[in-house]
């Protein structure tokens, strides 16, 4: 198993963006058009984080013209340039799949603003010096 872990380590990012399930985020995705590269921003709510190490992915859901759109991003993909947390959420569960059944305002209500005592790691200072090893289990336990 160790060899596999080592191989995964080679594709880990040094700086892992910090965000949690329930956050409204901007995902900066590198996109190649012809020969040029540009960065596209995908905005939405993180409804799940899955996997660990290099295999970790997160699912972002947003509503586009009344239609729900979900994208699954590999967290450590070199194409994911940055993930910026715009609005912190306070979910009561780890996977927010119930948002798929909701429309309109009810999607918003589930997310709450404000700090959670003792659980706030998503502030600006933490963003600059992320501690990925510590960060991941916390999100899972939530």
């Amino acid at each position: 198993m160790n060899i596999i872990e080592e191989i995964q380590k080679s594709s880990l990012k040094k700086k892992v963006p910090t965000f949690k399930v329930g956050d409204t985020v901007d995902v900066h995705v590198k996109i190649k058009e012809g020969g040029r590269e540009r960065i596209q921003i995908f905005n939405g709510i993180v409804i799940a984080r899955q996997g660990s190490q290099a295999v970790e992915t997160f699912t972002v859901r947003r509503i586009v013209q009344g239609e729900g759109v979900e994208r699954i991003f590999p967290l450590h993909s070199p194409n994911i340039v940055n993930v910026i947390s715009r609005r912190k959420g306070r979910p009561r569960r780890a996977k927010l799949y119930y948002l798929r059944q909701r429309t309109g305002k009810s999607i918003k209500v589930k997310e709450r603003l404000g700090e959670i005592p003792g659980a706030d790691t998503i502030d600006q200072t933490a963003k600059k010096t992320p501690a990925p090893e510590k960060e991941t289990p916390k999100t899972k336990n939530e």
Partner: peptide, 12 residues
């Protein structure tokens, strides 16, 4: 055979 995992290609 050691096992399976995934890696990223150059284009991501």
């Amino acid at each position: 055979k050691i096992g399976m995992t995934q890696v990223f290609a150059e284009n991501g």
